[in-house]
Write a protein that binds this DNA or RNA. Structure first.
Lengths: 172, 172
DNA sequence: GGCCGATATTTCGCTGATGAAGTAATAGGC
DNA sequence: GCCTATTACTTCATCAGCGAAATATCGGCC
């Protein structure tokens, strides 16, 4: 069941028609935007499908991974919010759930008692080390259409874009 | 307020640390995946911010644009679902809202009375023609970090990826 | 021509994420 | 040493989107 090809086709046709209709349409940029979002959604769906069996979604895993991959297995909700691109509200829910599952622990910072310190537990580390490896083959497959140099180029462009769109404030 | 740079930095550091820890981690692929999602989320946020003033979200606009850009300004819920990557449930809600706002109209197909035919109205077309142009400058800015050839390369890679990840079924 | 499985869409109940308001603690001016 | 603004997090109400079930229609088989 091919889902993306019709989207891509309709996208190119549609943009062509709209361009005839609305002057000044930045055709190439629209294509880049839509293709990027299309790929993002598809990849996200794949991940979430794989996480469903362990009752997790991508935000949950991302949060857990931020702790797993931090220098000392420790962080705070606000730091995780900026690094995992989440709102505080949601971070509360995620961490509460992870604490309940015993994957992380919550405690208070001594120097600033407003701050909550989150630490990944031994069980959390075990969980990650068991969960990730089975996902590797499929992940490689996703990008198997690229040559090594294409992968490098793609990475370079994605990184460049991320750092560029960063500080652009929205025009109100 | 720079939000993405710390994410990118943490990503590269984090992946480095995890790679030391979990053998077989496809480092490059993980970076590609995370960077792609990061960019997608940031771009989506920008769009949704711009749409908030007109009480719309990106899915709503995408749906409306599929109709605007179709050959005859007409489609069906199921077709829109596949093209706009939406579930039927959500499409019902979106189209109901668009009908309420007078941007599209709903009617029944004569040859198959199960099907609903959605048509963009004159007001819907006006709405789109008024809404889009102010978004062009910012959209161009987003990709202004790329040279023409980089934009072409990026588009080629994105398209290639979309068509590749398409038919890969999830391994259960 | 009536029954059965498939298809198109909607309804319903639930979950994940959000913005706004609330709580708690700190920091800085005076 | 208090008062105010700021910061860190949580709670609450709400909403978009989803899966499963319901509804309506079609198409084919006998």
């Amino acid at each position: 069941m091919s889902r993306l090809k019709p989207c891509v086709d309709a996208l190119y046709e549609g943009v062509g028609r709209v361009a005839d209709n609305i002057p000044g349409l930045p055709t190439c940029e629209v294509l880049l935007l839509r293709l990027l979002l299309l790929n993002g959604e598809a990849l996200l769906r794949d991940i979430e499908d794989k996480l469903k069996p362990v009752d997790m979604n991508e935000s949950d895993l991302r949060t857990l991974m931020m702790l797993y991959s931090s220098a000392d297995g420790t962080s705070t909700p606000s730091e995780l919010c900026t690094l995992a691109e989440q709102k505080p509200t949601n971070m509360t829910r995620i961490t509460t759930m992870l604490v309940k599952r015993g994957l992380i622990s919550r405690s208070h910072a001594t120097h600033d008692r407003r701050q909550v310190v989150l630490t990944i537990t031994a069980e959390g580390r075990r969980f990650v080390r068991k969960l990730l490896p089975p996902m590797f083959p499929d992940l490689k497959d996703r990008f198997a259409c690229f040559s090594d140099s294409e992968r490098k180029t793609f990475e370079r462009l994605l990184k460049k874009l991320a750092l560029h769109i960063d500080p652009v404030p929205p025009t109100p």
